[in-house]
């Protein structure tokens, strides 16, 4: 079974590590992951207004491409995942969006949300399994205390994202345990980092990011991990770095012993 992989713009530029470590790890785990050809930017944020069509088309193109492969679209960036999954839901449940998007794209066969959008963490949980992952760890991160930073995009809106319990998620803590480290649960792990508002109102993102880092640090975390380049930017550059912030794929690569290859 092949996963069609959608990296997105930022993973090819400012968040290369997130992407490169992820690819080393799928190789080590023996998964068949192939990057989508000629992908375009997903649009970065899901357009919520019901009459937005054109801003969803590039996501539909990506979804349709994966349908033509094995129907499994693998995402890694939290924002891309949120956009692709929500647009896919529109193609299933919003007849107006479906009709107009198909009219624009003139595909050979109508696209109606057939593709399954799977985040990298979901792939680890549902297709690899925590026990299997644990068995492949050569360098367990013993004694390292890690706070999972979920943020918003993976979890909400939970009716569509269906990623985990939006108020009390466990998937990243399970991941942390599987690689031999100790998860630190802290209250702000699913709070917003300030998102795109940091461009125009950096003070807001500073406040939000520091509240998250302070909460993780007060609960004993040595570092927090994220799947999102925007969260990474806000936490690292807006926050006052009371704890280190890393991409989860970096510590996965470390645990699997492929970080330096």
């Amino acid at each position: 079974m092949r996963f069609s992989y959608y990296p997105g713009c930022t993973l090819k530029t400012k968040a290369k590590e997130l992407n490169n470590y992820a690819l080393k790890c799928v190789e080590a785990l023996g998964l068949d992951v192939k990057e989508i050809e000629e992908w375009q930017c997903c649009g970065a944020v899901y357009p919520q207004a019901r009459d937005e069509i054109a801003t969803k088309l590039s996501a539909v193109r990506t979804l349709n491409y994966a349908k033509g492969e094995d129907g499994k679209l693998l995402t890694l960036c939290s924002a891309c995942h949120n956009v692709l999954k929500r647009v896919n839901e529109d193609m299933i449940s919003d007849a107006n969006v479906r009709l107009k998007a198909n009219n624009y794209l003139q595909l050979e066969e109508e696209y109606a949300g057939e593709t399954e959008v799977i985040h990298y963490l979901e792939m680890l949980r549902d297709y690899v399994g925590w026990d299997n992952l644990k068995a492949k760890v050569v360098n367990p991160l013993k004694g390292v205390k890690i706070g999972a930073y979920y943020g918003c995009l993976l979890l909400r809106p939970s009716k569509v994202m269906a990623f985990d319990n939006p108020e009390n998620p466990t998937i990243i803590e399970d991941f942390i345990k599987a690689i031999g480290a100790t998860p630190v649960v802290y209250p702000y792990r699913n709070e917003c980092c300030g998102a795109y508002v940091s461009l125009d109102e950096p003070a807001i993102s500073k406040k939000k990011s520091n509240a998250i880092l302070d909460s993780a640090s007060a609960n004993g975390a040595d570092m927090v991990i994220t799947a999102c380049p925007l969260c990474m930017y806000n936490l690292k550059h807006m926050g006052d770095s009371v704890v280190d912030v890393k991409y989860f794929t970096e510590i996965l690569a470390e645990a699997l012993g492929v970080k330096e290859d």
Binding site: K14, C41, S198
Partner: peptide, 19 residues
């Protein structure tokens, strides 16, 4: 005037799409 070396593309595109 607002960008530096560290700003991810995703932030710029997001803000543009919203604003």
């Amino acid at each position: 005037a607002k960008i530096d070396e560290t700003i991810p593309q995703q932030l710029l595109v997001s803000a543009f799409r919203k604003y």
